[in-house]
């Protein structure tokens, strides 16, 4: 049923010991769109992203790329290196103490594209520089990653993911700890990637930012039986008080942005 290129996760389950973290979660992220993964802390957003990325095996369920008519590509059964050329993950707060330059950090994104023991080729360098340029960070290429600000580092991580040349981009709270300008810059980049046809699934905390930048949202709710999908669909259908309030335990008022007409969520304090 899903259009080609869509990322489809079905009945994904995962338990940490006796505690169920994800309980039969279904998520679809259409190609060429930004899908926001929302939900309170502990609803399993990061876990779901890790499972979809193939970094953590699920307790059950399947993750696939819809191929439209033809057989879906099973992402979990895919060889690791091919999966890493198909799908990139930008983690939260990835850092290092080692004195790595920005260009070298972005070149890491080329790892799945070259031989296991091979070094970076000229083509790899060109792709890495283009990725840095796209992320608006080409001027940082010679800097050490550990000396960058939060916003700069986020751009570098985005560039590293772009250097993988993925069809699917998974982002775990990409705007965390960023000032508002850096948040907007990050989301603008994400939107432009989606316009180019990349399937984006991004875990986000800020509901108004999600409302302003996502095409679709999936709202996860924590429950005694683990995180489950409370609602999924277009922003205007999901980010409404009677859906949001019970999940977060808050009272929401939805305003309209005077220029964009997008929903803006405010909360009773």
């Amino acid at each position: 049923m899903s259009a080609p290129g869509a990322l489809v996760a079905e009945r994904v389950r995962w338990a940490a010991g006796p505690r169920l973290v994800l309980d039969d979660v279904d998520v679809t992220a259409p190609a060429g769109a930004v899908t926001g993964l929302l939900g309170p802390n502990g609803s399993g957003k990061s876990t779901l992203l890790r499972i979809v990325a193939g970094v953590q095996p699920p307790g059950g369920g399947r993750v696939a790329l819809a191929a439209g008519g033809a057989a879906d590509e099973d992402l979990l059964a895919m060889p690791r290196r091919r999966r890493a050329r198909t799908l990139a993950l930008v983690e939260q707060d990835a850092s290092t103490d080692l004195p790595v330059t920005v260009l070298d950090a972005v070149l890491l994104g080329r790892t799945p594209h070259r031989g296991v023991l091979a070094g970076a080729s000229d083509h790899d360098r060109r792709v890495a520089l283009a990725a840095l340029d796209r992320a608006g960070a080409v001027g940082l290429a010679d800097r050490e990653v550990s000396t960058l600000s939060g916003g700069e580092r986020q751009r570098v991580h985005m560039a590293r993911a772009l250097a993988q040349e993925p069809r699917v981009l998974l982002l775990d709270e990409p705007t965390n700890h960023l000032d508002v300008a850096a948040q907007l810059a990050t989301m603008r980049l994400v939107r432009s990637l989606a316009t180019d046809g990349v399937t984006v699934l991004a875990a986000l905390h800020d509901l108004s930012l999600a409302a302003a930048t996502c095409d679709h949202v999936v709202l996860l709710a924590p429950g005694p039986g683990g995180g489950r999908v409370a609602a999924a669909g277009p922003v205007d259908e999901v980010l409404v008080p009677h859906v949001v309030d019970p999940v977060y335990g808050v009272r929401t008022t939805v305003l309209r942005h005077p220029r964009t007409g997008r929903p803006v969520l405010t909360f009773d304090t």
Binding site: A53, R85, A88, E91, A94, V100, G109
Partner: peptide
């Protein structure tokens, strides 16, 4: 460089 998860996501 950026940890086990990042390495796994790069196909290692």
């Amino acid at each position: 460089t950026f940890g086990d998860t990042a390495a796994a996501a790069l196909g290692v």
